[in-house]
Amino acid sequence: MDYYRTFIQHFWSEHIWLPPNTTWADIAPEASKEINHTNPRHLIYPIPIAFVLLLVRYLLEKYWFTPVGKSLGIKHCRPKKAPAIPALENAYATSKKWKHKQIQGLAKQLDMSERQVERWLRLRKGQNKPSTLTKFCENAWRCSYYLFSFIFGVRILWDKPWLWNINECWTDFPHQSVTSDIWWYYMISMSFYWSLCVSQFFDVKRKDFWQMFVHHIATIVLMCLSWIVNVFRVGSLVLVVHDAADILLEAAKMAKYSGYQKVCDFIFAVFTVVWIITRIGIFPFWILKNTCIDAPKIVPMFPAYYIFNGLLILLLVLHIFWTYLIIKIAYRSVNAGQMEGDIRSSSDDFSEDSNENNEKKKEN
């Protein structure tokens, strides 16, 4: 217990997280009647709100997104199950990816053709795969949230001085009042990421499941730290910049699942432009430039400054990597005449569909 207390005291050291000559008591909620400092105790609120969001999502998917998807011709077809063959099931439980030699061996062992074994493997992989309608509803929910979050963020930031002059993020720092609209913006945003941590376990399973789980947790930790240290002004700008492109990404996938390929291609093209403008343009040359170069000229630096900037730079590195994937997909799409891939956490959505179609063609 003593080790735990010692660790906590060192971790939350004022010399690390606060500017010089500032203490935790100075930015406590009750420290001033004129300034409404952020309250770290409020960070518990996003957890129950996350379950409210999950309930809202369930209701929207059942009573709105599903009927809309069906009206667009998306069917809720259950995938065909693979026949029960114990030897193949045992091999599948050992490894989901079979090499050609393994397929040959299983075919000889069971007196089956290689094509029959390959077809069984394809059916086995697909029998637990969610239907297109399920994936459409999932994307519709995320698209709806990002649209709401972006509009809400722009609306509440429109009259905030730091939207128009980013140096205002550091005026009187860390003694800045958090308004009720910014409070709700932060709480709802954190709630959404908490809900993703829960829903990820029953949503469409992706190849980078754990990477995205760690990403959601890291996002929550970063938001919590920025709330505790009163860096919510920069945090609000980062949130609104990131929501813009995500709306279009989810909308493109909805169009893809609905069978509107040309609409999907158009949205994806717009998404690519918006992504590059916001993630490779505005984020580094507006936000990062201010936090890394301009901020030290306005406020005295402290260790947490380097922690936050390090995390933001890491985010930029991810943006650059994802931009490479987007451009690669856009190039392939131009050559193919339509979008044939996807990026980031849903990279397997379209690629697996196209692979499955190719396998069916081979069988025929």
Rank of each mutant, 00 (worst) to 15 (best):
F201H: 14
M190I: 14
V198N: 13
W164A: 11
I156T: 13
N165I: 05
W194A: 13
M187W: 09
S180V: 15
S199E: 13
Y193W: 13
W194F: 15
V198E: 12
T171P: 03
G153M: 00
S195K: 05
G153Y: 01
L157N: 00
W183N: 02
L157A: 04
N167M: 00
W162T: 13
E168C: 10
F201R: 06
V204W: 08
V204M: 11
W194S: 14
E168R: 14
D172A: 07
M190D: 11
W164P: 09
D172W: 04
Y193A: 06
S199Y: 04
P174N: 03
I182G: 03
S180N: 15
Y186W: 01
P161C: 05
W170Q: 08
V154Q: 00
V204Y: 07
Y193S: 03
K160Y: 00
S195L: 09
L157W: 01
F201Y: 15
D159K: 05
V178I: 15
N167S: 05
L157Q: 01
D172Y: 05
S189H: 07
V154Y: 02
F173H: 07
D203H: 08
D203R: 06
T171Y: 11
L163T: 13
I166S: 11
F201E: 10
E168N: 10
R155I: 04
I166V: 13
N167C: 02
V178M: 10
F173I: 07
Q176M: 11
Q200M: 15
Q200C: 15
Y193G: 04
W170V: 10
W162F: 15
L157P: 01
M190Q: 13
M190V: 10
I188H: 00
L196D: 01
D181R: 04
D181T: 04
S177C: 00
S180M: 15
H175A: 08
C169E: 08
F173N: 08
P161V: 03
Q200F: 08
P161L: 05
Y193T: 01
N167R: 11
V178W: 02
Q176S: 04
H175G: 04
Y193E: 02
S191D: 11
K160Q: 09
C197L: 15
W183G: 01
V204A: 13
I166F: 06
D159R: 05
S189T: 12
V198F: 14
S199Q: 13
S180C: 12
D172E: 06
I182M: 00
V178P: 05
D159C: 13
Q200V: 12
V198L: 08
C197K: 03
V178E: 04
F202V: 10
S177M: 01
W194T: 14
D181H: 02
S191H: 08
S199V: 07
M187A: 10
L157I: 09
Q200T: 15
W164C: 11
L157G: 00
I166G: 12
T171V: 12
C169L: 10
Q200R: 14
W164S: 12
W194D: 11
W158Y: 14
P161A: 10
